[in-house]
Amino acid sequence: MKPRWRNPSLIAGGAIVCALAAAAALGPSMVAADPLAINLNLVLAPAGWAHPLGCDALGRDVLARLLWGARISLSVSVAVVAVSVTLGSIIGGTAALAGGAADELMMRLIDVLLAFPGILFALALAAILGPGLLDLTIALCAIGWTGYARLVRGEILSLRERDYVVAARALGSRTERLLWRHLLPALAGPLIVRTSFGVAAIIVAEAALSFLGLGARLPTPTWGNMLDEGRAFLLIAPNLTAAPGAAIGLAVLGFNLLGDGLNRALDQRR
């Protein structure tokens, strides 16, 4: 069966993700306003030509902050997921291939880590490491890798029993060749799908931690801390809350749709 690339989820998700990536990459240089420039004449200014999304409580342009926030939120999320996937694949793959006591030990370690609700772990870690982007990234990576490790281990264990892998082994393939030639290509599909959902989850987690005051240090804008700052002005300036809220929602929707679409396209069993 050929991959089904033309499905609505994949197209919509891909379009949203591409648009967001473009906004994060190019947006900050296309908007003239400085996201950090305080202008007390523009406090809580409504949306208008000069400031399409209005200004916040310190007269800073909301659109500029939103775009800079996109850059931070997206790059943190992608970095966290990249590190998590790499770490998880190495650990999960090693456990599956090594087997025996090493496998057992690693899986019990993961059980304990998973017994910790993710965001709680990140919250506690961020609290100890102190607020800041790097610390936030470390905290999110610390919880992120376990899921991928489980996925990779499970897939390898099941792939190992497939006829074509058994045949390759019977023909004398070494573990190394087996891994590169047969296991990794088969693993790529589920891993890519999981990665897309993973980015969505990390965007929310990053926003939540920033919202709780444990993300990037102020005044650096992130979607999470913009939401937090807007909360106090919910009644008089709901745009301060709606703008970052919509951005987070759109990003999550985009990556979830992308994951769903990739799943449909790559799932050969359907």
Binding site: A200, V204, A207, A208, F211, G224, L227, G230, R231, L234, P238, T241, A242, G245, A246, I248, G249, V252, L253, N256
Partner: peptide, 16 residues
Amino acid sequence: LGVSVPHLCLGPLLMI
């Protein structure tokens, strides 16, 4: 839609 709207956004929305 329900899965995609994070708590963080839905809460303030409902409050408004």
